[in-house]
């Protein structure tokens, strides 16, 4: 299975009707492209410079490729996205995480509600395979050791293979790994972030000095699944 996130900064001058139409287009995508699974739209509440997150999944690379050539993708979704479209509602942002995703054996990320947190991680090029594997194992096991209701980690293979989920068309992605966390609500997230977990502690320290410096950089988003879009100031 391919887990995928599209992450967008909304243009400050985009009109509300256009933003709502884009949100609806993403949320309704699975009705028109049946290959789109586990689809939900959320609005980021962290201070990362992005607002909208569209999370979804595909059963296989072939399913992803069918999505890519589906008319709904070009006719409707791209209307709000492509740089030269007059109906574009998003802007380029400095986060560099527009499209990220990873492969997994099944819908291990599935949540029917609650709060999703997505931690984007950049691991060091110098990290050995053993170090990366150890790091991934530790993160994946966090749900058992800590207060998370879900903890899934994957290498961001889709960041550079966005065209067909197989062939890299760019260089190394800025964010090499994705760590999906699940919480009951914002109180649960706050409890974890300020609690005794060794991973939360590492994060509070900016990942300095843990896992032999395997983490170069990290940023996180969080959103309630199926949360209504907040009013814009």
């Amino acid at each position: 299975m391919i887990r995928r996130f599209e992450i967008y900064a909304v243009a400050p001058d985009a009109d509300d009707a256009g933003v709502s139409a884009f949100e609806s287009a993403c949320a309704r995508c699975g009705r028109f492209i049946p290959e789109v699974l586990h689809s939900a739209v959320g609005w980021n509440r962290s201070d990362a410079p992005v607002q909208m997150v569209w999370e979804h999944a595909f059963a296989s690379a072939e399913a992803y490729q069918r999505y890519m050539v589906h008319p709904y993708h070009a006719d409707v979704l791209d209307r709000y996205l492509l740089a030269d479209s007059p109906e574009r509602v998003v802007v380029d942002d400095g986060l560099g995480a527009g499209l990220v995703g990873y492969s997994c054996d099944g819908p291990v990320f599935a949540m029917t509600g609650g709060l999703r947190r997505l931690v984007l991680l950049r691991l060091s090029r110098q990290a050995s395979t053993a170090q990366v594997n150890d790091f991934e194992r530790t993160l994946a096991g966090a749900a058992e050791a800590d207060d998370l209701i879900l903890s899934v980690v994957g290498a961001n293979t889709l960041g550079s293979a966005w065209f067909d989920a197989v062939t890299p068309v760019g260089g190394r992605p800025r964010w090499t790994h994705l760590w999906e966390q699940g919480f009951v609500d914002t109180d649960g997230l706050a409890s974890y972030r300020h609690g005794p977990s060794s991973l939360a502690e590492a994060e509070r320290r900016g990942w300095q000095g843990v896992f032999d410096g395997v983490v170069e950089r990290a940023v996180s988003l969080y959103y309630e699944i199926a949360d209504p879009r907040p009013e814009r100031g």
Binding site: V69, H70, P71, H73, A74, L82, A83, D84, F163, V169
Partner: peptide
């Protein structure tokens, strides 16, 4: 739309 997908990638 298969060709459009390639055009989009090229753009």
């Amino acid at each position: 739309h298969a060709q459009w997908n390639v055009i989009r990638k090229n753009l």
